[in-house]
Every structure is written in structure tokens, then in C-alpha cells.
């Protein structure tokens, strides 16, 4: 499916959902717009526009994403997702350090030592700025940082 057609279908569903939920919240109550006023208004607009975009895609199919492209996007997003998940177990800065090393070694094929030379100073500076100076309470893991 082309990107434009996918966008048309998704925005149709989203617009319709917002429209129906907006009606449930109340479009007009007590002589004035209710909580559903804007969702109904712009949900219906989104539905109309998505139909228009879908009709456009019948004439010009538009660009598509290759399997390799989708794989790369999902791989990077999954790597970031795993890092977030590990933050509670290993602590934010250990997870971020591991993420940097893994990225440099596995994706960019850096030798481990070179990856460490980049990751360690980066994490150290981030730690000094965000923890020592700004005192942002990042999740801590086994190691206490």
C-alpha cells in the first residue's frame, strides 16, 4: 500500500473515532460548545479530507516504503524501546551507555574499544549535566545510577 493511501485510511479511522467520541462527550451543552465541539468539528473535517486524499491516490498511487526501509525503522525504534525498558532495571545511564556501544558496534561496525571511547565520555558529560547539575531524577537500577 502506498504511503498516501495508508495515511488516508489511518486519518479516516482517527477522524471518525474523534467525531463519534466527540458526539458522546457532548457537542453543544448549556447554550455553548461542549467538550466534544472541537473533536466533532475537526474529526468530520479529517474524515472528508481523508476521503479526498484516498480519491487522489486512485489517480496517482504515490510512493511506497521498501521492506528494507521498514525493517530499519522498526529496528531503530525497537532498540530505543528496549533501552527505555532497561532503564528501570539497569538505570538510565547504564542503559544509554549500552545503547551507544551496541549501536556503534552492531550498526556502524566500530571496534569495541573505539565505541567505548565515544560512549563513556558522552554518558559522563550527560551524567554531570543532568544528574549532578540539574538533578533530574532519572530511573536508577542495580548500580544505583
Amino acid at each position: 500500500m502506498s504511503g498516501d493511501r495508508l495515511a488516508a485510511v489511518v486519518s479516516f479511522v482517527v477522524g471518525l473515532y474523534w467525531f463519534l467520541q466527540g458526539l458522546a462527550y457532548g457537542y453543544w451543552i448549556d447554550m455553548g460548545p461542549g467538550p466534544g465541539f472541537i473533536p466533532v468539528l475537526f474529526g468530520s473535517l479529517t474524515v472528508i479530507l481523508s476521503i479526498s486524499l484516498f480519491l487522489q491516490t486512485l489517480r496517482h498511487k504515490g510512493a511506497t516504503m521498501s521492506a528494507g526501509e521498514v525493517r530499519t525503522i522498526l529496528l531503530v525504534s525497537a532498540a530505543v524501546g528496549v533501552t527505555i525498558f532497561l532503564m528501570h532495571i539497569l538505570g538510565a545511564f547504564t542503559s544509554l551507555g549500552l545503547f551507544l556501544v551496541a549501536w556503534l558496534c552492531l550498526l556502524e561496525h566500530y571496534p569495541l574499544l573505539a565505541a567505548l571511547k565515544i560512549a563513556v565520555p558522552t554518558i559522563l558529560v550527560a551524567y554531570l549535566v543532568f544528574i549532578v547539575w540539574l538533578q533530574v531524577p532519572f530511573p536508577k537500577g542495580f548500580f544505583g545510577f
Partner: peptide, 24 residues
């Protein structure tokens, strides 16, 4: 216009400031 409309839809997420009703 779809991008703009979706932005407005996303802006409706959260507790309604006047009625206090959670939305989306």
C-alpha cells in the same frame, strides 16, 4: 490541511478545561 486537522485532534487529548471531563 490533514496535518493541521490531526494537530487539532491531538490537541483535544486530555481533561477538558471547562467541564473537567477526560477526553481521548
Amino acid at each position: 490541511v490533514i496535518a493541521g486537522a490531526v494537530g487539532l485532534l491531538l490537541a483535544t487529548i486530555g481533561v477538558d478545561m471547562i467541564q473537567g471531563q477526560p477526553r481521548f
